[in-house]
Simulated scan of single mutants.
Amino acid sequence: MPLTLADVGKAYTIVRITGKDEVRTHLRNLGFVENGIVSIVSSINGNLIVEVKDCRMAMNESLARRIMV
């Protein structure tokens, strides 16, 4: 399922990253890699604050839909 459908506060394993090569590369550079752990800190109107590799960052809904957990 896409990260946008995940529950707040639970840890998930990233299964795959979809999208164009430049989008996948951008997400990998931010730390979103296959078999990595990601958790949602908060969700407001589909926009997320996520924690990956002990770092919190905000992302919009379209980018979060590219991350499959």
Rank of each mutant, 00 (worst) to 15 (best):
V38M: 03
M1D: 14
N29K: 11
M68H: 12
I67A: 02
V38R: 00
P2H: 01
K53A: 15
D7C: 09
K53P: 00
I49P: 00
M68E: 14
V33G: 06
V38H: 02
I37S: 15
L48W: 00
T4S: 15
L3D: 03
T4F: 05
L5V: 10
V23W: 01
E34W: 06
K10L: 15
V41P: 07
I17E: 00
G31K: 07
D7F: 06
H26S: 10
D7H: 14
E51G: 06
G46E: 06
V23P: 02
T18A: 14
G46N: 05
N47S: 15
C55H: 07
G31M: 08
D54G: 12
K20L: 10
D54E: 13
I49K: 12
G46A: 01
E61Q: 13
L48R: 00
I40S: 10
S43Q: 14
S62G: 07
R28D: 10
E61L: 09
G31C: 07
I49Y: 00
R66T: 13
I49W: 03
T25K: 11
V23G: 02
P2C: 02
A11N: 12
K53M: 13
L27Y: 04
D54Q: 10
I67H: 02
V23S: 13
I49Q: 10
V69A: 06
I17G: 06
M59K: 00
I49H: 01
M57P: 02
K53F: 03
V50I: 11
I17W: 01
I37Y: 01
L3S: 05
A6L: 09
E22K: 13
R66M: 10
L63P: 00
P2D: 11
N47V: 07
L27I: 04
T4N: 07
L5W: 01
E22S: 15
E22D: 14
I14D: 04
Y12D: 09
M57H: 01
K10A: 11
S42E: 15
R56K: 15
R65H: 11
